[in-house]
């Protein structure tokens, strides 16, 4: 885990791809956490998601912002594992580990204990573009362990269209980023997940602006 490599990754890859190639419109950036421990929960459509999310944080915070990612996918061979850990800075999560008696969230607990900002994709996997999958409840266990922790929902729109599964070059398109109001822990797991889901639905509803022509339509001179 080298902070220098991670900063270079953000400056040389995340910024150019996100700000130049794509271009982002961020709504309510001020709702993002400025320090850890905190959780940012985002929907997941493409590998670009993490680049966009990194570009939202101040550079000096980057060494302390880390995404939770599937160990079986991102650590599947030596070079990818090195890249995922040292350059991207993932916190590996062993999917299905619970059945073997290990807590898959071990790494996440450790990261939060170090005061880091943890990015999680509660859908678990990239799915159909712009469609939310069932949220996984691992996030509730994280908030339960660290009382007072906030979960900031972030809805990314347009990335699935820019880089559908199986493609290698992102199509240049503007991307919308909607940051929601932070959520705090609630004892009832189902209720907590329902609230989180609702935040995402709410954010998502803002992506399709239906333009009713107002009485005095605005001119742009």
């Amino acid at each position: 885990m080298s902070p220098l490599l991670r900063i270079l990754f953000v400056v040389l890859i995340a910024y150019p791809v996100t700000l130049l190639w794509l271009g982002i419109n961020v709504r309510h950036r001020e709702r993002l956490p400025l320090k850890g421990p905190a959780i940012v929960a985002a929907n997941h459509n493409s590998h670009l998601d993490i680049l966009v999310l990194y570009s939202l944080f101040a550079l000096r915070l980057i060494p302390r912002v880390r995404p939770a990612a599937a160990a079986d996918y991102f650590l599947r061979h030596r070079w990818l594992a090195w890249f995922s850990r040292s350059v991207v800075g993932i916190v590996p999560v062993a999917r299905g580990g619970a059945r073997r008696g290990n807590d898959p969230l071990e790494g996440c607990y450790a990261a939060l204990a170090r005061g880091e900002v943890l990015i999680v994709f509660p859908e678990g996997t990239r799915g159909e573009p712009e469609r939310m999958a069932q949220l996984k409840s691992g996030i509730w266990y994280l908030v339960k362990r660290f009382k007072g922790l906030t979960v900031t929902p972030v809805f990314l729109h347009g990335l699935g269209r820019s880089m559908p599964k199986g493609s290698f070059l992102p199509l240049p398109l503007f991307v919308d980023v909607f940051v929601g109001k932070p959520l705090v822990f609630g004892e009832d797991k189902k209720e907590f997940m329902r609230q989180l889901n609702e935040r995402f639905t709410q954010l998502r509803s803002k992506t399709a602006p239906t333009a009713e022509p107002s009485a005095e339509e605005k001119h742009h001179a």
Partner: peptide, 18 residues
């Protein structure tokens, strides 16, 4: 880029758009 972001395109046309 703004035009393409605005208009609906078919997913199969990804490479055509590139």
């Amino acid at each position: 880029k703004e035009f393409l972001t605005l208009v609906p395109t078919r997913r199969v046309d990804y490479s055509v758009l590139i």
